[in-house]
Write a protein that binds this DNA or RNA. Structure first.
Length: 480
RNA sequence: CGGGGCGUGGCUCAGCCUGGCUAGAGCGCCUGGUUCGGGACCAGGAGGUCGGUGGUUCGAAUCCACUCGCCCCGACCA
C-alpha cells in the first residue's frame, strides 16, 4: 500500500496543511509570481459558496455591490496619517505605464478606504444620501514577507464593505451587524466557531477608531483572525472631505465603516476540519456533497451496477464516479482526500439486497441503507455531519481555552502551549486596552486577539499588567 | 528582511562531497489484456539536458559567483 501523501498533523502541522491544500486540489503556489497562488477549481468552488452565503446576507441588509479601480493615486494613501503608516511597507506601486514614467505613481489597492472616500465625497451631500451601503468583491495586493496559501498571500480575494452614516451610533450598529453576519457564516455555514470581540488599540486597522474581529481556533490551537469590521469614525470623512448637511442644516462629516473577509477563510476552514486523510468539507460548503462509487467484477455485473448507479445518483443528486481502469479502492481514497462529505458504494451484493452503503467522511462510518430510504439517509447524514463538525470544533475551542490570573501564568501557559505539538491555547486574562499590555504579551510571541463582546468567559477583574479595572477577560494567543 | 532547507521526466527522490561512457529509480501517464467490496497485475511504450545566468575546465547535474522560486523558523504584518 502506498504511503499516505499527507504528513500527519502531529508530526508537522505546517506541512500537513500544505499537503491537504495540494492533495485536496484547492490551490498551488504560482511559482512564477512571488508570494501568489493559483486557486484551483476545487478551491474556487468553496470561495463561490462563501461568496453566495455572504452576498445574500449583505443584500438582505440593504447593501449593494459596486466596483472601484484597482489603481489608487499614491497621494490618496497619504491623506489619513495612520493609514499611510500602517500600509506603506506593504504597498506595490506602479511607476511606469505606457512606456513612460508616471507623474504620480499609482499604488495597487491594499484596501479601498481612500479611493472610496474620494467618491463618497462626490456622492454624499445631504443626510438624505445616507446611509450609503456598498460592498465590493475584489482582489487586493499587500507585499508580504512570508506567505502561506490562503492564510496570507501577496494577492488575495476578498469582499470589502464600505458604508457612510449620519451618526456614530448608526455606524456602530452597522459594524456590529456585519460582525454578526461574519459570525453566522463562520459558525452556521463553515461550522467554525469564533469569538467576537474588539481589537486592542495596538492591533486595530490603520485609520480606524475601533476594529472588531471574529477569531477562530485552528486544530493546533493557533488563533486565526477570520473577519474584521471597523468603526472608522470620521477619520476618512475628514481626510477626504465627506460632508453632508444634517437635518439641522449643519455641515457634518460622515461616519464611516469598513469590513471584510477574504479567501483566508478557506485556510481557516481547512485547519478547522481536515484530518490526516485529507480535506474535510462541511456539507453546506462542499461543492460536491455526494459521490457514488460503483463496484463490479464481471461485465454482466458492470452493466447492471452502472445502470442502477446512475438512476440512484440522479434521484439524490449524487455524482457517479464511473471512471474505468480505477479500482474502487483508489476511488475511495481519491474522494476522501477531496473532502467529499458522503460517499456511496453500490456493488452486486447491495444490488441484490436492494441497498447501498453510505459512508460519512468525518467519522468514516459505513451504513447499509435500503435504496428507498437512501435520499432521506443521505440528507440526514449531511445534516448530522454539518452539526457534528461544528460541535467538535466548538468542543476543541472550549477544551483549549484556559484562564490566567497573572502575567506570569499567561507566560507559563503560552510557553508549554507549543502549537507544533497541537497544544496552542486561548488564554483568557483580564487585560486593559493599553499598548503596554499588548507589548507585554508580545514578549511571549503571542498577541491580544481581541476583547470579547460577551461575557462568555468571565466578568470584571483587574488588569494583570496595569492593575486597572476591566470589564472582562481578553483572548491572548499565538496567531497566524 | 535575517537564519536554515530545497530546486534533476507529471510526482517523490538517487546521483553532486572525490567533474568524464547514451542522467537513473519508484509512482503516475499511454497501449493491450486480465482485474475491481479500501490505493490491482502482466507486457509493451512515451517522457528529463539536471530552476536561470555567467564563469572555471579538454569536459559541469556535479566546482565557483550571481540570480529566481518554494518550504520551515524568526522579525513584521490583515
Amino acid at each position: 500500500m502506498p504511503e499516505s501523501p499527507i504528513t500527519p498533523r502531529n508530526r508537522d502541522f505546517a506541512q500537513w496543511y500544505q499537503d491537504v491544500v495540494l492533495q485536496g486540489d484547492m490551490a498551488e503556489p504560482a511559482e512564477i509570481v512571488k508570494g501568489c497562488m493559483v486557486i484551483k477549481p476545487n478551491g474556487y468552488a468553496v470561495w463561490e459558496g462563501l461568496q453566495r452565503e455572504l452576498d445574500t446576507r449583505f443584500k438582505a441588509t440593504g447593501h449593494q455591490n459596486a466596483y472601484f479601480p484597482l489603481l489608487i493615486p499614491q497621494s490618496f494613501l497619504r491623506k489619513e496619517a495612520e493609514h499611510v503608516e500602517g500600509f506603506a511597507p506593504e504597498l506595490a506601486v506602479v511607476t511606469v505605464a505606457g512606456g513612460k514614467e508616471l507623474e504620480e505613481p499609482y499604488v495597487i489597492r491594499p484596501t479601498s478606504e481612500t479611493i472610496i472616500g474620494h467618491f463618497f465625497a462626490k456622492w454624499i451631500h445631504s443626510w438624505r444620501d445616507l446611509p450609503m451601503l456598498l460592498n465590493q468583491w475584489a482582489n487586493v495586493v499587500r507585499w508580504e514577507l512570508r506567505t502561506r496559501m490562503f492564510l496570507r498571500t501577496t494577492e488575495f480575494l476578498w469582499q470589502e464593505g464600505h458604508t457612510a452614516h449620519s451618526s456614530h451610533q448608526e455606524a456602530m450598529e452597522e459594524v456590529l451587524r456585519i460582525l454578526d453576519i461574519y459570525r453566522e457564516v463562520a459558525e452556521d455555514v463553515m461550522a467554525m466557531p469564533v469569538v467576537k470581540g474588539v481589537k486592542s488599540h495596538a492591533e486595530k486597522f490603520a485609520g480606524a477608531l475601533k476594529s472588531y474581529s471574529i477569531e477562530a481556533m485552528m486544530q493546533n490551537g493557533l488563533a486565526l483572525q477570520a473577519g474584521t469590521s471597523h468603526d472608522l469614525g470620521q477619520n476618512f470623512g475628514k481626510a477626504f472631505d465627506v460632508q453632508f448637511q444634517n437635518k439641522e442644516g449643519q455641515l457634518e462629516y460622515a461616519w464611516q465603516t469598513s469590513w471584510g473577509v477574504s479567501t483566508r477563510l478557506i485556510g481557516g476552514l481547512i485547519m478547522t476540519h481536515s484530518d490526516d486523510k485529507g480535506l474535510v468539507l462541511p456539507p453546506r460548503l462542499a461543492p460536491v456533497k455526494t459521490v457514488l462509487v460503483p463496484i463490479y467484477r464481471k461485465d454482466e455485473e458492470k452493466g447492471a451496477v452502472l445502470e442502477a448507479s446512475h438512476k440512484i445518483a440522479a434521484d439524490i443528486g449524487a455524482k457517479v464516479d464511473d471512471r474505468d481502469g480505477q479500482s474502487p479502492g483508489a476511488k475511495f481514497f481519491h474522494w476522501e482526500r477531496l473532502g467529499v462529505p458522503v460517499v456511496l458504494e453500490l456493488g452486486p451484493r447491495d444490488l441484490a439486497a436492494g441497498k447501498a452503503v453510505v459512508k460519512r467522511r468525518d467519522t468514516g462510518t459505513k451504513q447499509p441503507v435500503s435504496q428507498e430510504a437512501l435520499a432521506g439517509t443521505v440528507s440526514a447524514t449531511l445534516d448530522a455531519m454539518q452539526k457534528s463538525l461544528f460541535a467538535a470544533a466548538r468542543e476543541r475551542l472550549k477544551a483549549n481555552t484556559v484562564t490566567a490570573n497573572s502575567i506570569e501564568e499567561v507566560e507559563s501557559i503560552l510557553k508549554d502551549a507549543s502549537a507544533e505539538k497541537g497544544g496552542g491555547k486561548f488564554v483568557m486574562a483580564h487585560l486593559a486596552d493599553d499598548p503596554a499590555c499588548d507589548a507585554r504579551v508580545k514578549e511571549f510571541k503571542a498577541s491580544v486577539r481581541n476583547h470579547p463582546l460577551a461575557d462568555e468567559f468571565d466578568g470584571p477583574g483587574k488588569c494583570i499588567v496595569t492593575g486597572v479595572p476591566v470589564e472582562r477577560r481578553a483572548v491572548i494567543a499565538k496567531a497566524y
